[in-house]
Write a protein that binds this DNA or RNA. Structure first.
Length: 202
DNA sequence: TGCCAGGCCCTCTTTAGGGCCTT
């Protein structure tokens, strides 16, 4: 089974194109149906964290004031990730920040992102909704602590990834789920995946 | 303090609009 690097950012806003910067990152490595390693760090964004985001994440300006610089943290995180495929919930969001911050320190990204939100929409279209917290409760995944903190959300995403893989193995009678299969399912429309299920091939 | 986004997906669609999801 592939080893995946599941990442989650907490940030000062929604878009790096409008000045938002990361305040925290976590990376968990998943292999052989379990979490095998973790990396987590606060970082000093150098910009004010809006009050509503402090309330959402619990990460305050005081907490990040003495944290390491974003550049140093991102370098460590990139080394921790190595060449493993990246996974995130709503990966488009985390990918924007990952790419923007790596570009600032002149580091490239080689691997593709897999999105557990897109996979969840394909595989469990009837879930109440596809927010990470809802999926954790719906599938009774392990409690990882305070949501909207990077390590807790990264671990929840990791358990969701394992749940998705197990469901695919059950549904398609597979002994393992390759990274290529995840990418293929992610790229299919919901209706295409339903056709795959009906035809027992995907 | 509040505002700032953008890709995906559905449908009352495709010459569009709006909800979902991330912080």
């Amino acid at each position: 089974m592939s080893t995946y690097a599941v990442i989650d950012f907490e940030t000062t806003g929604l878009s790096p194109n409008h000045g938002a910067r990361p305040t925290e990152i976590a990376v968990v490595l998943v292999s052989n149906d379990r979490i095998i390693d973790r990396y987590q760090s606060l970082m000093n964004p150098g910009v004010h964290i809006p009050y509503d985001i402090q309330a959402l994440t619990g990460i305050t300006n005081a907490m990040v004031q003495k944290a390491a610089s974003i550049g140093n943290v991102m370098k460590q995180a990139a080394e921790f990730v190595g060449s493993h495929p990246l996974v995130a919930h709503n990966a488009a969001f985390d990918q924007k920040f990952w790419d923007a911050e790596l570009e600032r320190i002149h580091l490239p990204r080689h691997q593709k992102f897999t999105c557990s939100l897109l996979l969840s929409r394909r595989i469990f279209p009837d879930a109440p909704n596809h927010r990470l917290g809802t999926l954790v409760r719906t599938f009774r995944l392990p409690d990882t602590g305070r949501s909207h903190r990077a390590l807790a959300d990264a671990e929840s995403t990791a358990y969701l990834l394992l749940h998705l893989q197990n469901e695919l193995m059950r549904r398609f009678k597979l002994s393992a789920v390759s990274h290529d299969l995840l990418l293929a399912i992610q790229s299919k429309s919901r209706h295409q995946l339903e056709a795959c299920v009906r035809n027992h091939k995907c």
